[in-house]
Design a protein around this nucleic acid. Sequence first.
DNA 1: GGCGATTAGTAAGCATGCCTTATTATCTGA
DNA 2: TCAGATAATAAGGCATGCTTACTAATCGCC
Lengths: 153, 153
Amino acid sequence: MLTNRPEETFGLLLADGARLLRLRIDRALEEAGLGLTPGEARTLAYVALSPASRQTALAAQMNVEPMTLVAFLDRLESRHLVVREQDPTDRRAKIVRLAPEAQPILERVHGVTRKVQERALQNFRPEEVEMLQALLKRMRANITASEPGRGQE
Amino acid sequence: MLTNRPEETFGLLLADGARLLRLRIDRALEEAGLGLTPGEARTLAYVALSPASRQTALAAQMNVEPMTLVAFLDRLESRHLVVREQDPTDRRAKIVRLAPEAQPILERVHGVTRKVQERALQNFRPEEVEMLQALLKRMRANITASEPGRGQE
DNA sequence: GGCGATTAGTAAGCATGCCTTATTATCTGA
DNA sequence: TCAGATAATAAGGCATGCTTACTAATCGCC
């Protein structure tokens, strides 16, 4: 008896998988010499996906606190990869846009993440990749849905 | 055209899934009031899985640097959840064992991670859970294998 | 019009995880 | 016996993401 109950294996699997994947993406981005941290790259990708969003909306979409996003945007802006414009309809709000210079960077980010993905899913058949993708998507939906206020009550 | 190419969706899915899962486990452990950080909990689980291992072996199994493990063990030891004994066959090495007091804590950690898992996989059928588990396991194997330098060989 | 409540963004500071580089003690093998 | 490898550790660094608190602007409502 090795204390090898399935639950514990699955919990570790989740935690390890999550951790390792993060690490690989992190390292791959670093090796790419883009000067982007994973969070910055992720932010860039989301800005590209939802152009002309407000910061609050972007943060909600990314599932991070607004404050966390501010830090990413600060760094991206100082690299001239995004622009913050004032929302003409609300002077408190800002609209985030991709800077033109960001386009090639974005392509390279995609290249990097694609490579990580390929390595992680090396011997998977295409339908297995799709299956994994579908399951993960459902899992993410469950996770984000199960958090009401964030602190919850 | 929403720049909605599949690659980028999958990359974000991987990154987001990894991040969110980590966060949930983190928060669940904190709410449980065990006074354990995720890393500590993970370490505890691994010590239980491979009792009487050396630190180096444990670190390799956990896929962290030895130095990272030292920090976790320091904290676990100061809480009397693990014990470090000298390896009788090598005075440099130490054998890590679970302290008797750790057993109930470990059970509660399992409870917490099981709950996170249940919430994340809410509407999954049992065979889907198994499928996900199998795919993740293969992915983890790919990831750890693809690291030449330190990931063991 | 004006006052309170809410909202957008931000400042500051903290904990965690994980790494890297370097140090000390010990072991091993030629 | 002595060089080189190995086990654990010390010290320090960076990124992530959070929380709490503050400012400015807007909205709701009388």
